[in-house]
Simulated assay, not measured.
Amino acid sequence: MLYHALLLLHLLAVVAWVGGMFFAHFCLRPAAVEVLEPPARLPLMLAALRRFLGAMSVAVPLVVLTGLALFMPVGFGNAPVGWHVMLTLGLVMAGVYAFIHLVLLPRLRTYCAASAWPLAAQALNAIRRLVALNLALGVLAIAAVVWMR
Rank of each mutant, 00 (worst) to 15 (best):
V103K: 14
A116W: 08
E34V: 02
A141W: 00
N125V: 08
L137T: 03
M21V: 07
M93G: 05
Y97M: 10
R41P: 03
L135H: 05
A123R: 03
A113I: 10
L2W: 09
G20V: 07
L2Y: 11
R107T: 13
V81E: 15
W17H: 04
L6M: 12
L46S: 04
N134W: 06
A116F: 09
V63M: 00
I142R: 09
A40Q: 14
V14I: 13
R51G: 15
V103L: 13
V131M: 04
R107E: 15
A32N: 03
W17A: 01
A31Y: 11
F52Q: 00
R109P: 07
A59I: 03
V103N: 12
G75M: 01
H101N: 15
L6I: 03
L124V: 09
A141Q: 00
F23A: 13
L36R: 01
G19T: 02
R50M: 11
R128D: 15
A126T: 12
S115T: 12
L62M: 10
L62H: 07
M72G: 04
L108R: 02
V85N: 04
R149M: 09
T110N: 14
R129T: 08
R128V: 12
M56E: 10
L7I: 09
G95A: 06
M86N: 09
A120C: 02
H25M: 10
R29T: 10
A13F: 00
F76Y: 13
R29F: 09
H25Y: 14
F26N: 13
I142D: 11
V96P: 03
L91C: 09
G95H: 04
L102N: 15
P73T: 01
G138C: 02
N125Q: 15
N125L: 12
